[in-house]
Design a binder for these strands. Structure first.
Length: 154
DNA sequence: GCCAACGTTGGC
DNA sequence: GCCAACGTTGGC
């Protein structure tokens, strides 16, 4: 199986690429969406590439690269009554929610804004450019990956 | 702050 | 199982 590619969204006020750079590796916890859960639990492999996307900021866009550092495992924050994303339906013996660990790779020399993604031929089918795209973990094709990296670093 | 899109919940 | 109401996301 060859390396695959993903886009992962985060609000930088909560967790930014700089935060990931400081930590090195971070568990991507708190995702409570079944499509995103399925991708993290079933599809992501160690070494897969991640476009790191900042949302709910001005401007939103891809700010750098990360990679999958650990494959899917149960999200411990779902079991913790004090955690923000606690889910009593998820139990350790039958977990509902999964996460992966993400490792910092590099920051782009400049942000590739959402507006730029929308204006770039070849990226029309990226989920993130589609209206009201709420999925916080999205697959990216190899061509889309190359185009975005070339925009930032080309 | 607005609001469209979308996922989830709950009444029936 | 349907679907209206509701909550959340996230761009603008």
């Amino acid at each position: 199986m060859s390396r695959r590619y993903w886009l992962m969204k985060t609000e930088p006020s909560a967790f930014s690429l700089d935060d990931l750079k400081a930590k090195g590796v971070e568990p991507w916890d708190g995702v409570r969406n079944y499509q995103a859960r399925n991708l993290m639990r079933d599809e992501m492999r160690v070494g897969d590439g991640v476009l790191f996307y900042h949302s709910s900021t001005d401007p939103p866009g891809v700010v750098g690269l990360a990679e999958i550092a650990r494959e899917g495992y149960p999200d411990p924050t779902a079991f913790d009554p004090k955690a923000a994303h606690y889910d009593p339906k998820s139990r350790p013996e039958a977990p509902t929610w999964y996460l992966v660990d993400v490792r910092f790779v590099r920051a782009f020399p400049r942000i590739v804004t959402l507006a730029e993604l929308k204006a770039t031929p070849g990226l029309e089918h990226m989920k993130v450019v589609q209206r009201a795209s709420r999925l916080s973990v999205q697959p990216v094709t190899p061509d889309e990956w190359r185009i975005v990296v070339a925009l930032a670093e080309g």
